[in-house]
């Protein structure tokens, strides 16, 4: 991220409450992830230790330290979604996209397809349990997900059956 862009983001937040999370959120949204250089630059600019920023970024599943694909699919693995078949949805998604995810060292799940089109991540409850199981693609929520309806949804994002 350009230094100027970062400065613009920082300038949006004048009150100290919610400042760091707000800035990090804006970086995540604009870059799709949090580049290390940006995190280090931010640390200097707002005078918050890098250890503190890193702690926040690794705490929330919303943030990612790795670049992600063009579309980000987040599957909810919260209790309600889990009970109503989220694991089956994830399995189906993995086979449709030909990816194999495993939880990484930091406990975050994030896999990107070879063509860089999709990244699949896991969240814990979107607060939309009534529509469980739920998945989200680029911010749009899809409720009552099941393996059969997945292909049609993915096609809207440029996926084609092999």
């Amino acid at each position: 991220m350009e230094e100027k862009t970062l400065e613009e983001i920082i300038a949006r937040y004048d009150s100290p409450t919610g400042k760091v999370l707000g800035i990090l959120g804006d970086i995540q949204r604009s870059e799709g992830y949090i580049p290390r250089e940006t995190l280090e630059m931010l640390s200097v600019k707002i005078d918050v230790r890098i250890s503190q920023l890193y702690s926040i970024v690794t705490f929330y599943s919303f943030f990612s330290l790795k670049p992600v694909g063009e579309h980000v699919i987040t599957i909810c693995m919260g209790t309600a979604c889990h009970v109503r078949g989220a694991v089956g949805v994830l399995d189906a998604l993995e086979s449709l996209l030909d990816i194999h995810g495993d939880t990484t060292e930091d406990g975050k799940f994030s896999v990107t397809t070879k063509d860089n089109k999709f990244t699949v991540e896991i969240a814990r409850c979107f607060g939309a349990c009534s529509m469980a199981p739920v998945l989200q693609i680029d911010g749009t929520l899809y409720g009552y997900a099941n393996p059969d309806t997945l292909p049609a949804i993915l096609e809207q994002y440029g996926w084609r059956a092999a």
Binding site: I50, S51, Q52, Y54, T58, F59, E105, G107
Partner: peptide
Amino acid sequence: NFINRGPYTVVNTPF
């Protein structure tokens, strides 16, 4: 500082 969350939480240096 603390890194990660839940059962994956550890204390260490950033990165």
